[in-house]
Nucleic acid binder design. Structure first.
Lengths: 225, 225
DNA sequence: GAGTGGTCTAGACCACGGC
DNA sequence: CCGTGGTCTAGACCACTCC
């Protein structure tokens, strides 16, 4: 966190306030004009620093209200990933491979510590799989993957998956819709298998289903290029 | 990438230049004073925008020289992860679990497309495992994990692993050094197994070894808390 | 209307890099 | 010495939110 530029003073200043718990998430920071006095810096420098922190996901400036301490690190990750894709420094296929890794790991963690109550959640999802049109199935798909990740109880995995999902949202939607239209039965089956393996605590079957699920997605991505 | 704030004009401006290939990585952008004229914005706004892009990893301002288009997205990721840890919105254990996921996936990709030449690289590493002190073994460890990831040919996995590694660098170093001192033989064996499984193309054995490797790290992290 | 962020003005000086 | 980024000055006006 070190640096020679002036705005690091602002960052340190805010970090101190966080450390000493003078502000917590959702709390309001001193106004720009107030920080200006307290740190004897120009408003320019204050604002440059705030911009940095804003894009780090630590604060949010609300017009007419003030600057607030928030936790939007997820959005930060998202913008970095978007930039990577934009600059072609990464591809959808690479993103998909990372998603596969995260989902498999989340599944592994989930299987170890899932409660009966959580299992019932998956039973509900399982029931919803057979019915509905493409739109409905996209929803069920999201619900399943989301629940899987969140019950893994690893906030980092959750945040990563969330960020990555949004990055290639349109791409994914296209693929999923294509899938449920062309191959609805297979799609239903693979998701049912994932659900059931969670409920039954069958690690091998679950991982295999996830593999198959992503193999298919990767194949589709490949065919889109 | 939309937004109402003025500095989005600057971002769009630069994005356009990138799209039209007027500048490439390493290239120099117009000076702040020049952009000021071209976009009819104040220098303040230009600079706020540049700060945003700098912390996104897209540009770098060099004092006395100018602003350059770069690719430092890795550093951006790193700072977000550091912030997460700093704010206790994530833990070393969570980071370790993500690393495990990435490494397992990289291994999977690697196994599919490794060349004979690349295998020889792992043979070299394998030879170096038995010799040396703690310091040496830390180096070999790095070399192995690094080579594994980079041969997976997924730049995203590589970048993620790189960012995550630096975030918990001191923590990891401690653990590894502890390992090679307390349990050198086990440490050597597990790394040998990873190498051999790559050379032999034995997916099951490799994944098992990686699991074991990270199980041990997680256990150590747990005992540090 | 008071307070706040968003932006601008029209300059200025310093520190750094390259010629 | 010149161009560049880093920072500052001492204001200003607008748009927004809350009371």
């Amino acid at each position: 966190m070190a640096g020679d530029k002036v705005y690091y003073q602002v960052i340190t200043y805010i970090e101190e306030m966080v450390k000493q718990k003078k502000i917590t998430f959702g709390g309001k920071l001193p106004s720009e004009r107030e920080m200006m006095e307290q740190l004897s810096l120009s408003r320019n420098s204050i604002r440059e620093a705030l911009r940095t922190l804003e894009h780090l996901g630590l604060i949010e400036s609300r017009h007419g209200k003030g600057t607030y301490l928030v936790n939007h690190m997820g959005a930060s990750l998202r913008s970095v990933f978007s930039m990577l894709i934009f600059l072609k420094e990464s591809t959808y296929l690479e993103v998909s491979q990372l998603r596969r890794a995260i989902e498999a790991e989340a599944f592994d963690l989930l299987i170890l510590k899932i409660t009966e109550e959580e299992k019932r959640e998956f039973e509900k999802i399982l029931e919803q799989i057979p019915f509905g049109d493409a739109e409905h199935m996209v929803k069920v798909d999201r619900a399943l993957h989301n629940t899987l990740i969140s019950y893994s109880e690893n906030r980092l995995l959750f945040m990563m998956m969330d960020a990555l999902s949004e990055v290639c949202d349109t791409c994914t939607r296209l693929i999923i819709k294509g899938a449920v239209e062309k191959n609805a039965q297979w799609w239903q089956e693979i998701h049912s298998r994932i659900c059931r393996s969670i409920i039954d605590g069958d690690r091998q079957a679950g991982l295999a289903a996830i593999e198959e699920h992503y193999d298919w997605i990767d194949k589709e991505i490949y065919s889109l290029l």
